[in-house]
Nucleic acid binder design. Structure first.
Lengths: 224, 224
DNA sequence: CATACGAGTTCGGTAAGACTAACATCGAAG
DNA sequence: CTTCGATGTTAGTCTTACCGAACTCGTATG
């Protein structure tokens, strides 16, 4: 049963539940789901019930939301579509990495399986999208278990940027400007106590950069 | 007001009304509209009423359907989207000309104006799609007034194929196989009386090809 | 350990777009 | 000039996805 059997809305919910737990293990709540989907909690609650009836999520009233294997498979398929499209837009149509998210958000529901395969082929089966997020292969889903948010990394360490959340285009443009992209190396200078600000230096430069909590939470790094 | 302000359904109706009169001057009827949209006449009738309320078509009950200038502008925009996408799929993703119609039908509602412009640029501002249909420029709509259906061309004439309707993929594959594509030259050998069949020869070959009325109506030619 | 408050749910209601069934109109043929 | 069949319209219903309002759960705090 192809992912196109689901309504666009169901595809969005599944993808969102999956991505919410991709980098942080905490399961998502109805309220957060509603916020990210731009709908009221009552709507999200309704939708979850429908997904449950279809066997795509498990959810006891007032309890946590988890994907079933079937739901997870659909979610991974949507994530694959989204990230392949983002990569395609950047590499073939000259988009900037800050412009692709919204376009891919719409396209992922519209393109056929055939088109996704041809895009994958045309791009040479890429494994990461422009933000560093892994592109699941046609079957299973990979993961990058070692990564943590910059915000939670200890001081002093030399780290490598693994992925940057694609949620905020303006923030992405700023990161572009200062050279902060996936695979960049950086040093965490200090974490001031009682501040959420964090100071970093990019490898090869000596300029200090202060990042607030929003930015520091959007950047995932690894110490390897 | 961009075309994306309309519902997908409204976009489809306008495009269909426009394309129905692009090559033959006769205005479309509710029943034909319903058939081509794959809906019941009652649904088409409802929809036309809504389009009328929005000032996009003129329509007296039981009367003919015509686009207003505003409706026509939206329609041309949709046609441009469709044909640019078809061209893009063939040239960039290696689709066959018989595969692109359905994919473009969905994508035309999903891609942004920005993406359409980048595709246009990437393709070098093409003027005809893979089936020979003219691609309207960003503003006005062109036409190819001299063209007539092969079915209505007199005998003996040497003619040039201008466009081939993209409605039937199987038929397109057959045309491909025998080398019948836009810009092909052909001679009409004879029109048998009391038959809808027509016999043609492609330039440079001597094999006779018989075409039934469906095929002969899908091919538009010019004598120039 | 009671309760208040935030999180979650349930319950009508709306809008778009589709359907079926029943009704209205037009026009051609007798 | 009437009638009948094809074409078109109206009315009522369904589904999906959303909303607001009112209700319920459960836990953190006083």
């Amino acid at each position: 049963m192809p992912v196109s059997d689901l309504t666009n809305s169901a595809q969005d919910y599944l993808k969102l539940i999956w991505t919410a737990t991709e980098w942080s293990g905490t399961p998502i709540t109805v309220t957060v789901l509603a916020e990210r989907m731009g709908v009221r909690p009552s709507t999200a609650s309704d939708s979850i019930k429908k997904l449950k009836d279809q066997g795509l999520v498990t959810h006891a009233p007032y309890g946590t939301i988890e994907l079933t294997p079937a739901g997870s498979a659909y979610a991974v398929d949507m994530v694959r579509r989204h990230r392949l499209l983002e990569t395609f837009l950047v590499q073939v149509l000259g988009y900037g990495w800050d412009e692709v998210h919204d376009e891919a958000e719409v396209l992922e529901h519209a393109v056929s399986d055939t088109m996704i395969e041809r895009i994958d082929q045309r791009l040479g089966h890429p494994t990461r999208d422009p933000h560093g997020d892994p592109i699941p292969s046609a079957d299973g889903q990979p993961h990058r278990p070692g990564a943590i948010q910059l915000h939670h990394a200890g001081p002093i360490s030399e780290v490598t940027v693994v992925r940057i959340s694609d949620a905020d285009p303006a923030m992405l443009r700023y990161f572009s400007d200062i050279g902060l992209t996936p695979d960049a190396q950086l040093t965490i200078q200090k974490q001031r106590p009682y501040t959420d600000a964090i100071t970093i230096t990019l490898s090869g430069e000596q300029k200090n950069i202060d990042l607030g909590p929003t930015a520091a939470n959007a950047i995932w790094v690894t110490t390897s």
